[in-house]
């Protein structure tokens, strides 16, 4: 459906550099990354709002790299909705339909939960309703590909969670391919078939959300999903020594690195590393503890009380990312 080949747009320090990505028909791919990682630039390149310095963009088999936006047949859901203030919800849909069809427009508005609000203009709608109009407008255009740029970031958390699940269902039902930019890992996990992680303008890993979460290939990919602890360690023969404990690791055979593990990667074990619970917090069905491991602090999914002494061991082999001295000093500083 969408194929990006070595796409580059250089703004100096920022931009997109050598990005390649392939979307199959009906697939939803989330582009995940921190602010300034190049996500929105990538989306604007696909939309035709920016012209790439090099590389090519294909929609189906058509090379659209130099095509203006209006020729690409895309739908776009903007972070700030970008609704037309003088048009009603219904008029938004009719304007973008190739052959305006009132019945179809009404049906689509019903589907996104806006039945009865067809005549309302943007300033008469709530934030969630505006986002639904933006989505209905995008779908009414019958796009070859739907682009979503952090569409729920302006909504409150409850509405955000509700809407993103609804939209994902709708897109799958309509068999619409979508490129969904977000910095929210929960959103990527909830809506995407695959995730493309971006860092410094480059796509550093593309895989299913579960795979990127469980087996990140880079530190940026590991960080993109959050829930990450990092400890500066020295690896010797594929093992690290922590407080007298030896843990087997992968990703680095020898030298300085960062031991990366999620909150749920450590568990209570009688022979484990001694740790003191410093604070307990959490909610939403899990209890998290900030613990002092002796070699640094970490957050662990654990049932314990503040001040309690526990012993912790990894559930499997942990990952170490190699680090330069400079980066290591930085990480050690952060760990303190």
């Amino acid at each position: 459906m969408l194929r990006l080949e070595n796409l580059t747009k250089n703004f100096g320090k920022a931009g997109v550099f050598g990005a390649s990505l392939h979307l199959t028909p009906g697939e939803i791919v989330a582009v995940l990354g921190a602010s300034g990682s190049g996500k929105t630039t990538l989306l604007n390149l696909v939309a035709g709002l920016l012209e790439p310095d090099s590389g090519r963009i294909f929609l189906g088999n058509e090379d659209v790299t130099r095509q203006p936006p209006e020729k690409r047949g895309l739908g776009y859901v903007f972070q700030d909705h970008a609704l037309w203030p003088h048009l009603s919800a219904l008029e938004h849909l009719l304007l973008v339909m190739k052959t305006p069809d009132r019945a179809q427009a009404h049906h689509l508005l019903e589907r996104v939960g806006l039945g009865g609000l067809e005549a309302r203009k943007p300033h008469q709608l709530s934030g969630g309703q505006k986002q639904r109009v933006a989505l209905a407008r995008a779908l009414a255009a019958k796009p070859r590909l739907l682009l979503l740029d952090e569409p729920y970031s302006a909504l409150d958390p409850v509405l955000r969670e509700e809407l993103r699940l609804e939209v994902a269902l709708l897109l799958r039902a309509e068999q619409v391919s979508a490129l969904h930019v977000t910095h929210d890992p929960d959103e990527a996990l909830a809506v995407a078939d695959r995730v493309a992680v971006m860092e410094g303008g480059r796509i550093v890993q593309v895989d299913t959300p579960a795979e990127v979460y469980a087996r990140p290939q880079t530190l940026a990919a590991a960080r993109a999903f959050g829930r990450l602890n990092l400890l500066a360690v020295e690896v010797q023969g594929g093992q690290v020594q922590l407080g007298g404990q030896t843990w087997a690791v992968h990703g680095l055979e020898r030298g300085p690195g960062l031991l990366a593990f999620r909150y749920e990667d450590l568990a209570v074990a009688p022979e484990g590393l001694p740790a003191k619970v410093l604070a307990v917090y959490g909610g939403r069905g899990e209890r998290l503890c900030r613990v002092n491991l002796g070699v640094g602090e970490a957050v662990v999914k654990l049932s314990a009380a503040p001040g309690e002494q526990v012993r912790l061991a990894p559930l499997g082999e942990l990952r170490v990312f190699p680090l330069s001295q400079e980066a290591r000093a930085h990480e050690q500083g952060k760990a303190r």
Partner: peptide, 14 residues
């Protein structure tokens, strides 16, 4: 101007 650009993105001629 941006809202006109959005219209073009949805396939409307200039």
């Amino acid at each position: 101007e941006r809202l006109v650009g959005v219209g073009k993105l949805f396939g409307l001629r200039h």
